[in-house]
């Protein structure tokens, strides 16, 4: 269960960065906002995911001054990361589609 949590965290992180470059805290806030607080993960667990993506070359990091005035470590999606995002998106669609099919199938049977 935990492994799955991390894996779809990757998908969420990648898709957040597809829109614009963000820093860690900003991503947590944005994630909560977009999902209407459904995703309420432990905030620290985002960072291993981000560092893993960085080491694999899917994202790049740089330090920049945030709108708050302080300097923060920003993440940027690379082209390699864009490909990875598309793949993970496709995989997720297949997975969730399959779950939906099973549920629907079950409801019809009833």
């Amino acid at each position: 269960m935990k492994k799955q949590a991390i894996e779809h965290t990757r998908l969420l992180a990648l898709s957040l960065l597809a829109g614009e470059d963000m820093y860690g805290y900003q991503m947590i806030v944005e994630l909560a906002r977009r999902s209407n607080h459904t995703f309420d993960m432990k905030e620290g667990t985002l960072y291993p995911v981000l560092h893993g993506l960085e080491q694999e070359g899917f994202v790049e990091a740089y330090r920049k001054q945030a709108p708050t005035g302080r300097e923060r470590k920003y993440y940027h999606l690379t082209r390699k990361g864009e490909h990875a995002l598309r793949e993970e998106e496709a995989a997720w669609k297949r997975y969730s589609g399959a779950v939906n099919d099973v549920l629907r199938g079950g409801a019809e049977a009833v």
């Binding site: 820093y23 860690g24 805290y25 905030e43 620290g44 960072y47 708050t68 302080r70 470590k73």
Partner: peptide
């Protein structure tokens, strides 16, 4: 640094 900054923001 990164973790400390996150805590700072929160």
């Amino acid at each position: 640094r990164e973790l400390e900054e996150h805590v700072e923001d929160r």
